[in-house]
C-alpha cells in the first residue's frame, strides 16, 4: 500500500482516502488558520503513512485557553508564537526532545537556534517568522505610510476606514511602539498615555478583526489595516492595491514555532512531523503558501520568485523590530482593563 501511494500516480483524493483507510498511526495538529498547505499535510501523510488531523485557532491566547481548558493531551504539536512558547514552557505544557530525536535540528538557521523563549531549542523548532504592522490602500491614500500615525492618528482619507487586530497583545504593543514607551511598562503616566491614545484612536477605527484582516483589505471594507506581513502579501496578491509599511517608530516581529506538546498521544509521529518541517523543501512549501519567512537553511532553491522579491518579506535595514513581551500579572491586569475600556 505504501509503495502504491509513493508511486504517486493516484489522484490526490484517492490517496487521501487510501491513507485514511490504512494509516498506521495518527498525528493531531493544533495550528493557526490558513497557515499550512493541504498538499504538505497530504505529503506527510503519504510519506509516513500517518492519518493527520488539523484543528485551528486564531490567536496565541486562544491556543493557551484551549490547552488550559483540557485539550492538552489531545494534540501532538501546536504552533505558538515566541512569547507564547515561553508562557507554555512555564505552564509546563511542553515536552522536550533530544538531539537524536531531531536529526535535522542542524538545519535551523543559527540566529533562530539559541532563542530566549526556548534556549537551545529543547521543545520547539522554527516554523515561520514575520512582522506585524499594517497595509494601506494606495487608491485611497497616497501619502507617507512609514509611520504608526496611520493607525493611531490617521490622515483624513483613512479616518473611519481602519481595521485593527482583535488581540490586545499586538494592538496595544503597536500602540506602545507608537508612543515610544517600553512594553510592559509599570510607569503609571505611560500606561495612562497608552489608555488615552487608544481611547482617542478608536473613533478612527472601523472594526476589530484578526481572521478577517486580509478580507477587509481585499473587499475594501477597510482602507488601512493592521496585518501580518505574509497575510498582507496575500491580500495584495488577491488584487488589493495595498502597500505594507515598516513604520519608522518600529514594528512587531515574531516567530511561530512548532512545539512538542506534553502528553502528546502520538509523540513519535510528532517528532517525525517536526523533522519533516525542517527539510528545506517542506519549509519552503510553507513559505510559498503562507508568505512568511522560514527559519531553516537552504530553502532558497525551492522558493517562488514572488516570495523572494516581495516587499512585505524584505524589511528595510535598521528599523526598530520588537518582539512582543509577556508581561507579568500586575501589568497584564492594567492591559486587560485598557482593552475592556476600549471595547465597552
Amino acid at each position: 500500500m505504501k509503495n502504491l501511494l509513493k508511486t504517486g500516480a493516484s489522484a490526490l483524493a484517492l490517496s487521501l482516502m487510501a491513507t485514511v483507510a490504512t494509516a498506521e498511526g495518527k498525528l493531531s495538529i493544533y495550528h493557526w488558520f490558513e497557515y499550512i498547505p493541504q498538499e504538505l499535510l497530504d505529503k506527510f501523510a503519504a510519506e509516513y503513512d500517518v492519518e493527520v488531523t488539523l484543528d485551528t485557532y486564531d490567536s496565541n491566547e486562544a491556543l493557551l485557553a484551549a490547552l488550559k481548558a483540557g485539550k492538552l493531551g489531545q494534540y501532538d504539536v501546536a504552533v505558538p508564537g515566541d512569547y507564547m512558547v515561553e508562557i507554555m514552557g512555564k505552564e509546563g505544557m511542553l515536552d522536550t526532545f533530544t538531539d537524536d530525536e531531531m536529526p535535522l535540528k542542524g538545519n535551523i538557521l543559527p540566529q533562530w537556534m539559541d532563542v530566549g523563549f526556548d534556549p537551545g531549542r529543547k521543545s520547539s523548532i522554527p516554523y515561520q517568522w514575520g512582522s506585524t504592522s499594517f497595509s494601506v490602500n494606495r487608491d485611497v491614500y497616497s501619502g507617507d505610510i512609514q509611520t504608526t500615525d496611520i493607525i493611531f492618528n490617521p490622515p483624513e482619507e483613512l479616518k473611519g476606514k481602519i481595521n485593527v487586530l482583535d488581540t490586545a497583545g499586538e494592538t496595544l504593543t503597536l500602540a506602545s511602539i507608537h508612543l515610544g514607551i517600553p512594553q510592559c511598562t509599570t510607569d503609571r503616566e505611560q500606561l495612562k498615555a497608552l489608555n488615552d491614545l487608544v481611547q482617542n484612536a478608536k473613533q478612527y477605527w472601523a472594526s476589530f478583526g484578526s481572521d478577517v484582516a486580509k478580507d477587509v483589505l481585499v473587499s475594501g471594507d477597510a482602507a488601512a489595516g493592521m496585518i501580518w506581513n505574509g497575510f498582507g502579501m496575500k491580500a495584495r496578491e488577491e488584487g488589493a492595491n495595498i502597500e505594507y509599511a515598516y513604520p519608522a517608530q518600529g514594528y512587531i516581529v515574531w516567530m511561530d514555532n512548532v512545539v512538542l506538546l506534553k502528553d502528546a498521544p502520538n509523540r513519535e509521529n510528532a517528532l517525525k512531523f517536526m523533522n519533516f518541517l525542517l527539510e528545506p523543501e517542506n519549509a519552503a512549501a510553507v513559505t510559498n503558501y503562507a508568505r512568511y519567512t522560514a527559519g531553516v537553511k537552504g530553502v532558497e532553491p525551492f522558493l517562488e520568485e514572488a516570495v523572494k522579491s516581495a516587499p512585505e518579506l524584505n524589511p528595510p535595514a535598521g528599523g526598530n523590530p520588537q518582539f512582543v513581551q509577556a508581561c507579568d500579572e500586575e501589568v497584564q491586569k492594567v492591559y486587560d482593563t485598557i482593552w475592556t475600556n476600549l471595547k465597552k
Binding site: S59, E61, A62, A69, G169, D336, W339, K343
Partner: peptide
C-alpha cells in the same frame, strides 16, 4: 463577546 474574551482573550479571567 465579553464572556468569550474572558476565556479566549488575553485577559484569561
Amino acid at each position: 463577546s465579553l464572556i468569550e474574551e474572558q476565556f479566549k482573550g488575553a485577559a484569561g479571567n
